[in-house]
Design a protein around this nucleic acid. Sequence first.
DNA 1: GCGACTCTACTTACTGGTCAGTAAGGTGTC
DNA 2: GACACCTTACTGACCAGTAAGTAGAGTCGC
Lengths: 192, 192
Amino acid sequence: MKPETDARITDTRKKILDLAEALMLSRGFNAFSYQHISAELGVRNAAIHYHFPKKSDLGVALIERYCRRFERFTQAQAELSPGEQLEQYFELADRYFGQQQICPSGILSAELQTLPEDMQRQTQAFVALMRGWAEDIVRRGRDAGVMHYPGSAEGMGDVVFAAMQGALQLARFDQQALQSVKLQIRQLLGCQ
Amino acid sequence: MKPETDARITDTRKKILDLAEALMLSRGFNAFSYQHISAELGVRNAAIHYHFPKKSDLGVALIERYCRRFERFTQAQAELSPGEQLEQYFELADRYFGQQQICPSGILSAELQTLPEDMQRQTQAFVALMRGWAEDIVRRGRDAGVMHYPGSAEGMGDVVFAAMQGALQLARFDQQALQSVKLQIRQLLGCQ
DNA sequence: GCGACTCTACTTACTGGTCAGTAAGGTGTC
DNA sequence: GACACCTTACTGACCAGTAAGTAGAGTCGC
């Protein structure tokens, strides 16, 4: 039985993924090594290679987990109003910021050209998922009459998504930047 | 006479900076090596070290050049209307996109935590410069009565800057994303 | 106008460190 | 005894950075 399809995912495997995720969001995929993980975990380097033979296997598993997590997140959100969904999006960003991290799509798109091909494809799918979600929020917000903005829902969704991604990067220099962008997006959407 | 203060900057030195710039904007600062540059330039690795002893020296010189270039850009722009300034900003982004690059502040902030300290400081100054400029455009646009938006000029400037930075990263997956964001920003600002 | 000197802009040759990745062996559990 | 989950021990590639040497162009005293 492959670990990927096994319900009881190895403890070590999960710890590796968690550590790799934190490292990727703070340092980037290229800038962390198996050493970083194994040292923190108290195992040898080759133990990581046992679970993820190539670094790209680890990267792909990381993005796949993001996609699954995101799917669950949006399903759990389905009952919420567009305004509440937006606020949950903002809280997600706050959580990244609190850990001195940026959003996964931000680091992955910045490093894109140096990533292994399978990771590039996976990233593309993940970014499309998040982009579609932002678009969905502002479209349903306008349809429900609680959000008001000129132009298309596609355009507004892209601006919200791009601005939040950029804001998390800006927030590394000025912690007020994230608050500033969130507040301005609320005002541009005419909600609250 | 130091090369930095000499008007006649070495040809090789300039070529190194140009190549390093292109490499940084497409691959990132950590993901290019002196080998990449020396191979392209037809010189030996140590020749690069002659002009830039440490890689961080090259990085700092790169950002310093950005600051100087940006200063000249904004000065040349001083006579233009806010609407025209915004369009020039958009054209700048188009140029990066055309070369499969992202904006310098995007890659530098994504990699920030792995950059040498002097580069981090330099980056902070550069980002502050660009942020202030975006804020200035939308403030003067509102004052002149040609741009209309809720909230503060600080907030709107941050959204425009963050959205453009994010859009260039999104555009790596979907080339329409940049157009989409530019169009939406124009509509949010109520100009054109 | 010629040798001595100096400086710039490199070269060759090297070091030590880090990296991903592999092979083969060990150990405990079912 | 088969398998999951590690270990030790290693390889080869790449990396930033350094030391020492050199070719050529310009400068200086004389």
